[in-house]
Design a protein around this nucleic acid. Structure first.
Lengths: 294, 294
DNA sequence: GCCACCTAATAATTAATACTTATCGTTTAA
DNA sequence: TTAAACGATAAGTATTAATTATTAGGTGGC
């Protein structure tokens, strides 16, 4: 097996053929004429056959006629591949998989991703919504590149970057007595029928822990939870982002004492390098969400 | 547009992936480990992204995972192309177009080409038979690579190499009075009904020219000519090779005075380089036919 | 026919690149 | 904890590719 042919040499030959002379080919390649002469001759010697007729005009030999289309093919394939790889390298092309908690997925991501795809039109995005724990798991297992989730437990394989905080409040019907309050302390909730949900654990290590512990109801499904609240079956606590703001029947009252926040952060694996498109997404998310109140 | 990626660098990357370590990849590539390290790093810098995870084990980055199959593709395409081109360069593969006069085509080429294709099984051959003049024309116009023909007129675009001589003789019915002669002089033919054919011009510049000039019949088609002779309609002159030796009714008597020979030679263009496969054929024909009496 | 002119080949030199040897710092496994 | 394996780095060398300057070979104009 012969040693590698150099793409550049093939390109030289093609250009000489296209231009019809070594001189003008050299000009277009920003080389001098002897550079082409020598490179072509070196290639010819390696192949053991001349590509160009020597002596008179620089026509191709029959062997050259055979080779040049093949050279063109390979150079074309190289260029397409190189272009493709470069686009992926600089993050203008690729596929990013993101997992987020549902509240972020529905309230924050739509506008954000619209802006992202406007800026990076050739990046494909897959967005999964899962609960906070499963978001971390998907990141850790490499099922997604990035996660946006509430940070609740450190994992040494994952790297967390804080984005913003999300205040916990009480959600109840608009006609509920608590609805008129500007802000609430946990004592005000005693005696209320509290329905727990997936975010209730955020209160566990606070002064309001007892409230949660005494609650008999647990509903994980947000749609069911909202329906229960609308029916006046009780109240619950939610991070503001998880509260459906457009709902006409329910209202959100911030919890003042204790002031509880859900810390939302960007999660990625610590070992694996992100694909360039994911790096672009990461930078975009940090730029747009870091330190923002929402 | 980025500068050319080097096939060799891509090969290095692929080998590191296959072997799982820089060390063993280097061993298989007959290089030292730092050579690979540096080459890979150079490529990574040009792409602007790492292909391998640095720090811990040498796994591929997601970007590397994306690239390596494409690198493999290009290297594979390169190798196939290089192989193909090399085979054509050394004449083990290709297509040769030959034109010969009919007598050579039917009497000499069959066995010769059988031997050739046994020696060069991957070379395709096209064989045309045409008259001597048109053989030269086909060569001159590049329709064929090589011609085997009688040399009768110099052409500055063509290069002739003598192969062998072909004696002219008289062809007549076995029951003809001349048939019993061992050899003949032109005087013996006077009074005979001579049928001219395409090869009769070979006698024009000899002592027998008058015979030909006085002949009233001309038949160019060999089948018709033979039929005429078999019918006893006259006699003709032919080079020995053009005489159908298996014919039971006709016989060939060498012409002694004048002794006329048809010079058969190999013809090719003087300007154009032969394709490697044609070079192989040329060498083969010269080896087999040069100086041979037949 | 001779002379300019255009082109490619060659020679000498320099720049760039690829590789080697030697060494160091980590990590892995005994 | 040490030895072994691995990769990164540094310094030096070899190889390759490019430059400039020059030569040589045709071609066309006069």
């Amino acid at each position: 097996m012969i040693s590698d042919l150099k793409i550049q040499q093939l390109r030289y030959v093609i250009m000489v053929v296209e231009e019809g002379s070594f001189h003008s080919a050299a000009r277009r390649l920003h080389r001098t004429q002897p550079a082409l002469s020598m490179a072509v001759r070196e290639l010819e010697q390696r192949l053991g056959q001349n590509l160009f007729e020597r002596g008179s005009k620089n026509r191709l030999t029959p062997f050259g006629e055979y080779c040049v289309p093949r050279f063109r093919d390979l150079v074309g394939q190289h260029d397409r591949m190189a272009n493709d790889v470069i686009n992926h390298a600089d993050g203008t092309q690729g596929h990013v998989h993101i997992a987020t908690v549902p509240s972020v997925a529905s309230r924050i991501m739509p506008a954000l991703l619209a802006e992202f795809i406007a800026r990076f039109p050739d990046i494909n995005i897959s967005l999964h919504d899962e609960n906070a724990h499963y978001v971390c798991q998907m990141v850790a297992q490499g099922e997604v590149d990035l996660g946006i989730t509430s940070i609740w437990q450190t994992n040494e394989d994952l790297e967390y970057a804080h984005l913003f905080e999300d205040k916990i409040g009480v959600v109840c019907r608009r006609d509920h007595i608590l609805a008129s309050c500007e802000t609430l302390g946990w004592q005000s909730l005693q005696g209320e029928k509290l329905i727990r949900n997936g975010t209730s654990r955020l209160l566990m290590s606070t002064a309001a822990a007892q409230l949660v512990e005494n609650s008999a109801f647990y509903i994980s499904n947000m749609i069911s939870l909202i329906a229960m609240l609308e029916a006046g079956a009780g109240i619950t606590t939610l991070p503001r982002l998880a509260f459906p703001e457009t709902n006409a029947n329910l209202c959100f009252v911030p919890l003042h004492d204790p002031e509880v926040v859900r810390r939302i952060g960007l999660v990625k694996t610590i070992n694996r390098t992100l694909a360039p498109a994911a790096q672009a997404m990461q930078a975009f998310l940090l730029e747009k969400l870091r330190h923002g109140a929402e």
